Structure formats: C-alpha cells, structure tokens
Amino acid sequence: MRKTPLYQAHLNLGARMVDFAGYLLPLQYTSILEEHLSVRRGAGLFDVSHMGEFLVRGEDALAFLQWATANDAARLKVGRAQYSMLPNARGGVVDDIYLYRLGEEEYLMVVNAANIAKDLAHLQGLAKGFRVELLDLSEKTALLALQGPRAASLLQGLTDLDLSQKRKNDVFPARVAGRPARLARTGYTGEDGFELFLAPEDAEPVFLALLEAGATPCGLGARDSLRLEAGFPLYGHELTEETNPLCTPWSWVVKKEKDFLGKEAMLGQACQERLVGLVLEAGVPREGYRVLSEGRPVGRVTSGGYSPLLEKGIALAYVEEGAEGSFAVEVRGRAVPALLSPLPFVPLK
C-alpha cells in the first residue's frame, strides 16, 4: 500500500482510510453528505496526489500529442488546459486525461492513478519516431484540489496573484502560503476551483493552510458523488478499452478533423448502445444494476448513487441504441421507474 505525502495529516484529522488504486486515501472525514454539500456551498479540499503526471516535451511534442490524444492539442495556447482521451487502435479508450500546455514545446499530462503504468507504456510505444521526451513525474508531484463557490476567495488570501483574472482551464505558476506551486483552474466536481501541483514536501503546509483558511477536508466518497452529480465519467466504468467515446455524452472530445490513433476504427463503429443519465423515483442505483425498458432488459448501470441536491438516486448507464418508452432500474429485485436525464444532473456554474 502506497501513501501520499498527506497520509499522516489525514490520520490526524480522523479520516477513514481505504485502498484506492494501491494508495491509502481518505474515504471520508465526517460524512460523505456533509463533505459533498461543503463543496456545493463553500469550499472542499481533496488530496489527489495519487494521480499520475507525465511531462511531454521536445520539438515534436505537439505532433506526438495530436496523434496520441483525441482532442485537438493544437488549440492549446501556453497556459491553457483541456480535457482529452488517449484512444487505442480499436477505437476504445486507454484513459481519459487532462492536458496542460506549460511552454511552446512542453506539456503536462495528468492521468488516472490506476492507469499510470499502462499509460506510460502506451505512450512510450507511440513516441517512437517522434523527437519527444516523456518523463514520469508522478512520484515527484503532490496534487491538491480546492473546489467550490468559495474556492477562489479562500485561495486568494494565500497568494499575491490576482485570481479574478484567471479563467477556467488556465494554468499558471504561483506561490501559495509561501510555497511554490503550479495552479490550474480545473477540477472534477462541476464547481469552480483550482488544482494545486506541489513538491511533495510542500503538500502538508499548503494543505493545512487551506484548511485553516476555511476549506473543508473531503474524501473519495464525496469526490465520487460530486462527479456523478456533475455527470462526469470515471475510467473503468463509463470509459474503458472497449467503449467508443462517440457513443457517450463526451463525444465532443473527439476532434474528427484531425488524425489520431484508432480514428478509423472509432468512426467506423456504429453505436450498439449509448450512455445516458437516469433519475430514479425511489431507491439508490448501483454499478451493475439492470436497466429495463417496457419491462425488457436493455442495459446496465455503470455508476450510481444518491444525489444530495436532487435527493434522489441517479445513474449513468449504457442502454441499447434506440431503446425508448418507460425506463426502470432493477433495484434489489424491484423495477424502480426512472426518467432519462440530461447531464449534468444538477445545475452547475
């Protein structure tokens, strides 16, 4: 079991620790509901140091990333970031990622913790023939996520930089609580917020300074309920090596006007099923529950849970292409009526 630089700080705060992607991380400190609402109404602070970070640099960095990612990296100006995916040769998804352009020939790629080794091997294989250097900075990087409507005002008190001038998806150097950091106005909750890239030795002082300034410590439980409420995918659930992103609400990521690995396979596949959002009349759906249409099984839940804002069960699910009529989710042997819902499930800024 691996530990982040904040492991002892989590214990000191009474966190309930669990195994996630081989790391000991906080599931919750008080309750998932309280932490969820603290992000929607104030500012919540997450330790996401388990995520992977790769530095991509060199004169062919852009050409390499154009081939390796589904989004258009050429649209990124220095100091900007974009959500993207790593496609495979079959048109599926190796991982979903965030890409940050740090310099003219330098990019930072953030990948999912469980996929660090797989992604690195995949990218190293693709890099052959490109004049590009690929460095794994995962062990040298700590990462915090400060999320919520009060995130900017809370963080502003700890830095001399004018955060009001920073837009969503901006990335920039700063000092936070006297420590050097790279900040990005990005996150995984649907709220405004910042992710803070730090040296491991600076993580705890900045973490504690943010808590003292008024942030609420939040664990994996709230992180998952927040991303589900926001209608965001979790790799291994909504996106896999076998899923075609064109059959999901995140098809906008795929820029068909450029060439990339697996493009022909991806565009050549007809969608046999599509990913949709469902809101239940009662009960809480969970991964693997069957989705019914007119009483017939037509799909499966990939992620499900309780929405604190809607006060109802919500789910992301793959259903047969063309399935229509009245939907239901089979919860503990009972068909619970469900309505199709646009994403996100709740209004977000």
Rank of each mutant, 00 (worst) to 15 (best):
V93Y: 03
Q269M: 01
A74K: 13
R182P: 02
D95T: 09
G288S: 11
K140A: 15
A209W: 02
Y235N: 10
A335N: 09
P344S: 14
A152G: 03
G262R: 10
W67F: 15
M1W: 12
V56M: 10
L226K: 11
N169M: 14
V319Q: 10
L316E: 12
Y29D: 01
P245N: 05
K263T: 12
A270M: 10
F130N: 05
M266W: 08
L135P: 01
S49Y: 10
L134A: 05
G14N: 15
L163V: 07
V18M: 05
N88L: 08
V346T: 15
L143Y: 01
P347K: 13
P87S: 14
R167V: 05
L37I: 02
H122T: 04
F46K: 05
P308Q: 10
V336Q: 11
N244E: 08
L27M: 15
A181K: 13
P217Y: 11
S138N: 06
K140H: 08
R150S: 02
Q156L: 00
L310F: 12
K166C: 06
G190N: 11
Y289L: 04
E324P: 02
R57N: 09
A21V: 11
A328N: 02
L163M: 13
T30L: 03
E287S: 06
A145L: 02
R90C: 09
R332A: 10
D259L: 11
G178I: 04
R167A: 09
V176L: 13
D47G: 12
A68D: 00
Q8R: 15
Y100A: 06
T69S: 03
S293R: 00
L339H: 13
